[in-house]
Computed example of a mutant assay.
Amino acid sequence: MRSLLSRLWDTKGLARWILLVGLVITVAFIVLAVFAPWIAPYGFDQTKVDGVKFPKVGHASGDHLLGTNDQFFDIWSRVVWGARTALEVVVLSVVFSGVIGVPLGLVTGYVGGWWDRVVVFVMDAIYSFPSLLLAIIFSFLLRGPLGGGIVAAALSLTCVYIPQYFRVVRNTTVTAREATYVEAARALGAKPATIMRKYLFGNVVQSVPVITTLNAADALGTLAALGFLGLGIQPTEASEWGYDLSRALDDAQAGIWWPAVWPGLAIVVLITALTLVGEGLNESLNPALRRRRLRSVVFPRRTPATAKEAS
């Protein structure tokens, strides 16, 4: 971790600014998600206060900063609560994908043999499907036992991204297992589990942070697409930007723009921020792309005594 932070700190140029801008925007959305109960003035499914119903498709006002939509929901509250939903689903899907894909790629890449070929065949078959189509299929399969909640959406995305982690880690492991230090550890009698844990794992996971951020951006877009199609999180479970955007299409055609603009803008901004973080990490961690800051070199001043000794 210290080496990773050191490399990020020593990076200069455009990559540094891309990473900083992406991090600032991403942190802003994380703050919205974490403190949603205190930032949002209303609940994600609240339509009335003290028995008085909110206006339908109301303009922005003091009570409703961004107006209301056709379901009497406060748009600002839906956007804030939608940030929490997006954070929960993306984090769960990325964690599940990494927990399954990284160890599987490490073990199969090191062991090899027929088992490696079978797993590679299965992962390549899954990877060949379009991500959205695969997410729709798993969403249908998981909706019955798990319902239309956050866990079901996260698992449907997990099935999409496991092959990406597997392919990267497995290919790196196949190359690293023939390295000299691995051969030396094997010659000293180290067990395969010890070699994978102590010598291979730290080297093959260096590209995982970049994949994680890029997958998070893609997962957010896939989640919004599922919600837009009505196959994602149900409106009674949580606020979801894709669903709100789908509901606002008819209003947009009638000239009522605000129900569609704000959730759509939230999707675009957060995806852009996560993409910037991924690209910034890639250029900061990749030795072929990284530009380091030059450090000034200070030579000790030569005193008469040192000059006499040198002569």
Results as ranks from 00 to 15, higher is better:
residue 223 L to D: 02
residue 166 F to G: 02
residue 135 A to E: 08
residue 198 K to C: 04
residue 121 F to D: 08
residue 121 F to K: 12
residue 188 L to Q: 13
residue 202 G to R: 15
residue 162 I to N: 03
residue 144 G to K: 14
residue 208 V to S: 05
residue 110 Y to H: 10
residue 206 Q to A: 06
residue 126 I to W: 10
residue 183 E to Q: 14
residue 171 N to A: 15
residue 173 T to V: 12
residue 216 A to E: 04
residue 119 V to D: 01
residue 138 F to P: 00
residue 117 R to G: 08
residue 143 R to S: 14
residue 126 I to K: 09
residue 148 G to P: 08
residue 160 V to R: 10
residue 126 I to V: 15
residue 131 S to T: 12
residue 146 L to T: 05
residue 209 P to C: 06
residue 205 V to K: 01
residue 158 T to E: 06
residue 142 L to Y: 05
residue 205 V to L: 03
residue 149 G to Y: 07
residue 121 F to Y: 11
residue 184 A to N: 04
residue 220 L to A: 05
residue 108 T to I: 06
residue 184 A to S: 11
residue 176 A to M: 13
residue 158 T to I: 10
residue 140 F to I: 15
residue 219 A to T: 01
residue 114 W to F: 11
residue 168 V to D: 00
residue 155 L to F: 06
residue 197 R to N: 05
residue 145 P to Y: 09
residue 198 K to I: 12
residue 169 V to D: 00
residue 187 A to D: 05
residue 219 A to S: 14
residue 147 G to C: 12
residue 128 S to I: 12
residue 118 V to W: 09
residue 146 L to V: 09
residue 170 R to T: 01
residue 131 S to Q: 10
residue 175 T to C: 01
residue 117 R to Y: 04
residue 114 W to I: 14
residue 226 L to H: 05
residue 157 L to A: 03
residue 213 T to R: 03
residue 160 V to L: 06
residue 206 Q to Y: 00
residue 160 V to Y: 08
residue 140 F to Y: 12
residue 158 T to D: 01
residue 144 G to H: 11
residue 143 R to Y: 07
residue 207 S to T: 14
residue 121 F to H: 04
residue 208 V to Q: 03
residue 184 A to R: 04
residue 176 A to L: 15
residue 220 L to H: 06
residue 173 T to D: 06
residue 219 A to R: 01
residue 114 W to L: 12
residue 148 G to A: 15
residue 177 R to V: 08
residue 222 T to V: 13
residue 127 Y to V: 02
residue 160 V to F: 09
residue 156 S to V: 07
residue 183 E to N: 12
residue 211 I to M: 11
residue 123 M to I: 10
residue 122 V to Q: 03
residue 218 D to A: 13
residue 141 L to E: 03
residue 162 I to H: 04
residue 206 Q to H: 02
residue 221 G to N: 13
residue 201 F to R: 10
residue 161 Y to S: 10
residue 133 L to Q: 07
residue 194 T to F: 04
residue 186 R to C: 06
residue 220 L to F: 07
residue 176 A to I: 13
residue 181 Y to W: 13
residue 109 G to E: 04
residue 118 V to D: 00
residue 198 K to H: 11
residue 121 F to R: 15
residue 197 R to P: 00
residue 175 T to N: 07
residue 174 V to W: 00
residue 183 E to C: 08
residue 183 E to S: 12
residue 184 A to Y: 01
residue 123 M to G: 07
residue 123 M to W: 02
residue 202 G to I: 10
residue 214 L to C: 02
residue 224 A to T: 11
residue 119 V to C: 02
residue 150 I to R: 05
residue 213 T to P: 00
residue 114 W to N: 04
residue 207 S to L: 07
residue 111 V to G: 02
residue 190 A to F: 13
residue 159 C to V: 15
residue 177 R to K: 15
residue 115 W to N: 03
residue 168 V to S: 03
residue 203 N to L: 09
residue 119 V to L: 13
residue 224 A to Q: 03
residue 156 S to G: 09
residue 218 D to E: 05
residue 226 L to K: 01
residue 163 P to I: 02
residue 193 A to L: 14
residue 131 S to H: 07
residue 158 T to C: 10
residue 174 V to S: 01
residue 134 L to V: 09
residue 204 V to M: 01
residue 173 T to I: 08
residue 210 V to A: 02
residue 112 G to H: 11
residue 133 L to R: 09
residue 132 L to W: 01
residue 118 V to E: 03
residue 223 L to E: 05
residue 178 E to C: 03
residue 134 L to Y: 06
residue 156 S to F: 06
residue 178 E to T: 13
residue 151 V to P: 00
residue 182 V to R: 05
residue 187 A to R: 02
residue 215 N to V: 11
